[in-house]
Amino acid sequence: RIEKCYFCSGPIYPGHGMMFVRNDCKVFRFCKSKCHKNFKKKRNPRKVRWTKAFRKAAGKELTV
């Protein structure tokens, strides 16, 4: 099963990425440490230029 990165919305293939479980049992999956570090710094994915959330908000990503 291919999961989605919580921060950048990129695909996470089986055996890859990192799973972060908070004390309230909420699960966050990250494709790379870059995404996990930005999440820990409480960065907003919509303001980080390389994420899909930014591209969609800025009108750069074509949605079908």
Rank of each mutant, 00 (worst) to 15 (best):
K34L: 08
L62A: 12
R43W: 13
K47E: 15
F30V: 06
T63R: 02
F7P: 00
R22I: 10
V21F: 04
R22Y: 11
A58M: 08
M18C: 05
W50E: 15
A57N: 05
R49A: 15
A58W: 06
K40A: 11
S33F: 02
K52E: 15
F39T: 02
M18I: 11
K47V: 12
V48E: 13
C25M: 09
R49K: 13
K26N: 11
N23P: 09
L62G: 15
K34N: 05
V21T: 07
K4N: 02
F20V: 10
C8Y: 00
H16K: 07
A53W: 05
K40S: 10
Y6H: 11
R49Y: 13
K34R: 03
K52F: 09
N38E: 14
D24H: 01
L62W: 05
C31L: 00
S33E: 15
G59I: 06
F28N: 02
P14H: 03
G59D: 14
I12V: 07
V27T: 07
M19Q: 09
V48F: 10
R55K: 12
C8F: 02
N44I: 07
V48D: 14
G17K: 05
S33R: 01
F54G: 12
T51Y: 03
M18N: 04
V21R: 02
M19N: 09
L62M: 09
Y13I: 11
F20L: 09
G15K: 01
R46Q: 14
K37W: 04
K34E: 14
I2L: 06
V64H: 08
K34T: 12
A57G: 10
K47N: 12
G10D: 09
I2H: 02
S9Y: 07
R1N: 11
L62R: 10
F20Q: 05
R55V: 15
K32S: 14
R55S: 15
P14N: 02
F39E: 06
K41H: 08
W50S: 11
R43L: 12
K47T: 10
R29G: 06
K60I: 12
A58D: 14
M18W: 05
D24V: 00
R1Y: 00
S33P: 09
K34A: 11
M19I: 12
L62C: 03
N38D: 13
K52I: 14
I2V: 09
T51W: 04
W50F: 12
A53M: 06
F30S: 01
V21L: 06
F30K: 01
T63C: 07
G59S: 10
K60N: 13
S33K: 05
H16C: 10
C25P: 03
G17M: 03
S33W: 03
K60S: 14
F28L: 13
K32R: 06
R46E: 15
K60E: 15
V27P: 03
C35F: 01
L62P: 09
F39N: 03
S33Y: 02
G15Y: 02
R49F: 09
K42D: 14
N23W: 04
V48N: 07
S33L: 05
R29L: 08
K40H: 08
C31H: 00
F7M: 12
K52L: 10
Y13W: 10
D24C: 02
R46Y: 09
G15A: 03
V64T: 09
C25A: 11
A53I: 05
K37D: 15
R55Q: 15
K34D: 14
K42W: 03
C31F: 00
A57W: 07
P14M: 03
K52T: 14
A53T: 08
R1S: 13
K56L: 13
K32L: 01
K42C: 08
M18G: 08
F28Y: 09
F30E: 01
V64S: 03
C35P: 00
G15V: 02
C31M: 00
A53N: 10
T63Y: 07
A58L: 04
I2R: 01
K52D: 15
P45I: 02
K34H: 07
Y13N: 12
R22H: 10
C25S: 12
P45Y: 03
F30A: 04
V21E: 06
K52W: 11
F54R: 04
K47W: 09
K41R: 03
P45H: 03
R1Q: 10
K40E: 15
I2Y: 08
A53S: 06
M18T: 08
F28A: 05
D24T: 01
D24A: 01
G17W: 01
G17E: 11
K60Q: 14
R43P: 11
A53Y: 03
R43F: 12
D24F: 00
K52M: 13
R46V: 13
R49C: 13
Y6I: 02
T51K: 06
M18S: 08
A53C: 08
P45G: 08
V21A: 04
F54K: 10
F28E: 12
T51C: 10
N23K: 02
R55A: 15
F30L: 02
K26Q: 13
K41W: 03
F28T: 05
K32D: 15
S33M: 08
F54N: 14
K56Q: 14
K60D: 15
R22N: 15
V64I: 08
K47I: 11
R46M: 11
D24I: 00
G10C: 03
C35I: 00
N44W: 03
T51G: 07
E61W: 06
P45N: 10
R49E: 15
K60T: 14
L62I: 04
F54L: 10
A57E: 15
G59C: 12
M19K: 05
R22M: 14
E61N: 01
F20K: 02
R29S: 07
R43Y: 14
N44M: 06
C8R: 08
N38M: 09
P14E: 05
K37A: 13
K34G: 07
K56W: 11
G59P: 12
R29N: 09
M19L: 08
M18P: 03
C25V: 05
C25R: 06
K32T: 14
R22D: 15
R22G: 15
Y13D: 14
Y13G: 12
R43G: 14
R29A: 10
C31W: 00
R29P: 08
G15R: 01
K34S: 11
K40W: 10
I2Q: 09
C35V: 00
R29K: 08
I2S: 08
K37F: 04
H36T: 04
P14R: 01
K60G: 14
G17D: 08
P45F: 04
F20P: 01
C25Y: 05
F28S: 03
V64D: 03
H16R: 05
F20N: 02
F7S: 11
N38A: 07
K32Y: 01
C25K: 07
N44G: 08
K41T: 08
R29I: 03
G59T: 10
W50T: 12
K52S: 10
F20G: 04
C35R: 00
K42L: 12
H16S: 12
H16Q: 11
D24Q: 00
G17V: 03
A57T: 08
K60V: 13
M19E: 11
R1C: 13
R55L: 13
Y6E: 04
Y6N: 02
K52R: 06
P14K: 03
F28C: 01
F54I: 11
V48G: 07
C35Q: 00
F20D: 10
K26V: 03
Y13F: 06
K37Q: 12
R55T: 15
N38H: 04
R46P: 14
G59Q: 11
V64A: 09
K42E: 15
M19F: 09
A53D: 15
F30Y: 02
I2K: 02
W50R: 05
N23T: 07
F39I: 01
F30W: 00
F54C: 11
Y6C: 12
K42N: 10
V27H: 02
K42M: 09
C31S: 00
C31K: 00
R46F: 08
T63F: 04
K32G: 14
R46H: 10
Y6V: 05
K40D: 13
C5F: 01
G17H: 03
K41L: 06
A58V: 06
K32C: 07
M19Y: 07
Y6S: 12
H16I: 09
A53Q: 10
